[in-house]
């Protein structure tokens, strides 16, 4: 993130590369993430998100320089995981485990786990501590996983598609619990999701990644200052172009167009139509399209999940 703070960055990435055969999953990715931020890592399938998260969590090697909380993730993974928690998706709690056993286990192995906090969170749900995971609904499993993770006083929480497959009620509950019961200025959340609209209001920063390239690294405050979206009629669009203003992306709308500008004074644009801050989804499409125009066609990206290729 480009945001300047008084804190040291908890993630420092410089020139990260990851290659699977001929395919470059990450290509010269550099960024910094500071404490107390909620960062959205946004990208389509195969963009390199999971490769990047795996590297941050010490689950896979990355070329380049990567430091998380001052540690080398791959070499110091056990030490790192005392301060970092993650949820990879909603269905990875072992089905044979009972709820109270899950709490006992995490309490036994994690020095920063607060059993009372986990139990208090679970008390708000309908989950029976004696139930096996396989007897719980998908939403309940997510609640349990979140209860376990939120009871850990970790400095960094990594969430990869944490609400995938959940209905709208559980998704809302998930994010409101995350904000109310977990997040504070000392903690950082790094989150990926396809449902960008749902987390848009939570995020303080975004990282856009596409085909292994970082295409945007910005705070939300900066986005509202740097980018403007202008809704104009067809005639209005022509006037904008005649005035020499060049949108980075435009999209046809009913009876007009939506033009997205970067680094153009909003007051200048206001003379042509209605302006507003672009949504994350619109901005993502704009930035990715712009970035792709300047890049040669690359190999089709495989959808790299939480496993190595070639297996």
């Amino acid at each position: 993130m480009n945001t300047t703070t008084n804190h040291a960055a908890i993630i420092k990435a410089q020139g990260l590369h990851k290659q699977y055969g001929d395919f470059k999953a990450l290509n010269d990715v550099s960024f910094r993430i500071f404490p107390g931020r909620i960062v959205g890592l946004i990208g389509p399938n195969g963009a390199g998100k999971t490769s990047l998260l795996k590297g941050i969590l010490g689950l896979s090697t990355l070329d380049g320089e990567l430091s998380v909380l001052g540690l080398k993730p791959m070499k110091e993974r056990t030490k790192l995981l005392e301060q970092v928690s993650f949820i990879a998706d909603t269905a990875i709690l072992p089905s044979w485990l009972k709820v109270h056993q899950a709490i006992d286990y995490v309490a036994g192995v994690h020095p920063k786990f607060n059993r009372e906090k986990a139990q208090a969170f679970l008390a708000k749900t309908t989950i029976n501590p004696k139930s096996r995971i396989k007897a719980l609904s998908k939403g309940m499993v997510t609640q349990l996983h979140l209860a376990l993770v939120m009871a850990i006083d970790s400095k960094l929480l990594v969430l990869d598609e944490p609400t995938l497959g959940l209905d709208i009620m559980y998704r809302k509950q998930f994010y409101s619990s995350l904000l109310e019961d977990y997040f504070d200025e000392q903690k950082t959340i790094l989150i990926t999701t396809h449902q960008v609209e749902e987390i848009e209001n939570l995020l303080t920063d975004v990282l856009f990644i596409d085909r292994g390239h970082l295409v945007l690294d910005s705070s939300m405050d900066d986005i509202s200052q740097r980018f403007s979206q202008l809704s104009v009629s067809t005639e209005g669009r022509q006037k904008v172009l005649e005035a020499g203003l060049r949108p980075i992306y435009e999209e046809a709308r009913l009876g007009g167009a939506s033009l997205l500008f970067e680094g153009v004074d909003p007051e200048t644009l206001a003379a042509f139509g209605k302006i507003h801050t672009p949504s994350i989804a619109d901005l993502f499409v704009a930035k990715v399209s712009t970035a792709n125009e300047g890049r040669p066609q690359e190999n089709q990206a495989p959808n790299i999940q939480w496993k190595e290729t070639g297996q």
């Binding site: 998706d89 990875i92 192995v109 020095p111």
Partner: peptide
């Protein structure tokens, strides 16, 4: 096989 490896790997156990 049951995908629980990521849960175990999320714990500080080498």
């Amino acid at each position: 096989k049951d995908k629980s490896i990521l849960f175990w790997k999320s714990m500080p156990v080498s």
